[in-house]
């Protein structure tokens, strides 16, 4: 058994990493919960957002955290347009078509990025990237603490929008009862696009939180989305609270299994846990019965 001196920092760091996982999963679960499709373009869109954050810094000199203010609305509009004018018309109202269209989009976006920027891995250097906060028993990296705080704020805003605004209520109504929503005067095509936009906006924020300490190449987003899929299943498909708690939980699992099994095997723990969840609680830890 390891001493608390090693264990506590590992758990705290796990929570901090888990917050960004949770944000990526939040976008995925939101889209799944309302449109009832798995968005296969999620990883590619995250990669695109990371490139955007990278170049906004490189070309405009904008700090990634400030870039989030610019990129979040931009990606919301991009996601809205993608669903409304490309995915929905191409899918002809068939769910399985939407699945294939998002898969096709992923291929186009990834290869577009590869064509434009090559397979090179890029990083940006920021003076605060390696700064730490000393809590006495543990050092926490500043970018991770910032990321954690931002994710909590985003989750609170999202909660407020979903429970207190008419658009949020309309999203929840469409998620559970599409025909009833249509007959209440809710424009379902619009709500689908808003939801897709929100999911994409989550990715823009996640990208801006990742870029100070992470690299970007045309495949960079996929690693996060694989974990996000695990989180979405773990938390219960379509459950927003589940995605948040699941994300934090997965971060801790990864951190602890890295500690016990060695850093490079940290993700092993995630997938062992994933298999256990599928075996014993296939609806997820917080999900409703399917």
């Amino acid at each position: 058994m390891l001493s608390p001196v090693i264990l506590i920092p590992a758990v705290l760091n796990g929570l901090l990493i888990g917050a960004v996982y949770a944000l990526v999963a939040l976008g995925l679960t939101l889209i799944y919960g309302v449109l009832h499709i798995i968005n296969f373009a999620h990883g590619a869109l995250l990669t695109a957002a990371m490139f955007a954050a990278f170049f906004v810094h490189r070309l405009l000199g904008l700090d990634p955290y400030l870039a989030a203010v610019l990129l979040t609305p931009l990606f919301f509009v991009f996601g809205y347009g993608l669903q409304r004018f490309i995915i929905a018309p191409a899918a002809h109202g068939e769910d399985r078509n939407i699945l294939l269209v998002t898969l096709g989009l992923a291929v186009i976006i990834e290869n577009g990025l590869l064509y434009a920027f090559r397979a090179d891995t890029r990083t940006i250097n920021l003076d605060y990237a390696f700064r730490v906060i000393d809590l006495g028993i543990v050092f926490l990296a500043v970018p991770r603490v910032v990321a954690f705080g931002v994710v909590i704020v985003v989750a609170l805003i999202l909660w407020f929008v979903m429970s207190r605004t008419d658009t949020g209520r309309a999203i929840r109504a469409v998620a559970k009862e599409k025909l009833g929503a249509e007959l209440s005067g809710i424009d379902v095509a619009h709500i689908y696009a808003v939801t897709f936009g929100l999911g994409t906006a989550c990715l823009a924020i996640a990208a801006c939180l990742l870029i100070p300490t992470y690299y970007v190449n045309p495949q960079a987003g996929n690693a996060f989305v694989l974990i996000a899929f695990t989180i979405v299943v773990l938390g219960g498909m379509g459950s927003v609270a589940g995605a948040l708690l699941g994300g934090l939980f997965v971060g801790v699992v990864e951190s602890l299994s890295g500690l016990y099994l060695g850093e490079s095997l940290g993700q092993l723990g995630i997938f062992v846990m994933f298999i256990l969840v599928l075996l014993f609680r296939p609806n997820g830890l917080f999900g409703e019965r399917i």
């Binding site: 559970k176 929503a181 809710i186």
Partner: peptide
């Protein structure tokens, strides 16, 4: 076709969405 996941009040309020 009511919204089962929402409160009675929220259901009514959505009636006046449009």
């Amino acid at each position: 076709r009511i919204f089962p996941n929402m409160t009675v009040r929220e259901n009514l309020d959505l009636g006046a969405y449009r």
